[in-house]
Computed example of a mutant assay.
Amino acid sequence: MELTFNDEQTTALLEALGLAADTADVAVILAAIADLAVAENAIAAKAAGKGLTLIDAAQLAALELAAEEGRTVSAAAAKAVVNGHVDTAIREGKLPPARRDHWVKLIEADAAMADVLASAPVVIPVTEAGYGNAVGGHDGAGDDTSPWFR
């Protein structure tokens, strides 16, 4: 099989091999190609000896994109956990809704604050109080005002 190059292709090949533009000896060109292959294999072997692996640019870009997506998902999950701790404490009456942002920032800065918030006492009543039929032993039977006045 005969392989022929035009002038532009020959110039590009010689530049890629680091040879002078007027190099015409085929043996020199083949030796440069062989040296390049050996050098590339030597680089790969040296990298492998240090625990490294060579990958192409497309694979590296795909890995970097996947890593960025993973960081985004991880950050969103962490934010959801923090918000869950604070929302639970608000529902249980351990802190007022006005302090929500404060506690979110505290827990984001120090995850141990979630335990502090979970062990906090209930300071805001969240159950209904003050009415019903069985207050003080009076069941309110026959008395239309008993649920309203005690």
Rank of each mutant, 00 (worst) to 15 (best):
I107Y: 10
V104Q: 11
T72N: 10
A78K: 01
D110N: 09
G70V: 10
A80L: 14
P96H: 10
R99M: 11
R100K: 10
V81A: 03
A76S: 08
A111K: 05
K79L: 06
L95R: 03
S74F: 09
A112Y: 10
T72L: 02
G84Y: 15
N83R: 04
D87F: 12
T88W: 09
V86S: 03
K105F: 13
R100E: 12
K79P: 06
A98M: 03
I107F: 04
I107L: 06
A80F: 06
D110F: 04
A89D: 04
T88L: 09
R100N: 14
A80T: 04
E108Y: 00
G93N: 05
V104I: 15
A80V: 09
D87Y: 10
D101A: 05
E108V: 01
K94P: 04
V86E: 03
V73E: 09
E92C: 00
I90F: 04
A77G: 09
R100D: 07
W103A: 11
S74V: 06
V81G: 00
P96T: 10
I90K: 08
L95F: 08
I90P: 08
G93T: 02
A76Y: 08
S74R: 05
P96Y: 06
R91F: 03
E92H: 09
A80P: 07
G93I: 00
E69F: 11
A89M: 11
M113E: 13
A75E: 09
P97Q: 10
V73M: 13
A111W: 14
V81Q: 11
H85K: 02
A80C: 10
E92W: 12
A89W: 02
P97M: 10
P96F: 13
A78E: 15
R100V: 11
K79C: 04
A80E: 02
K79M: 00
V104M: 02
R100Q: 11
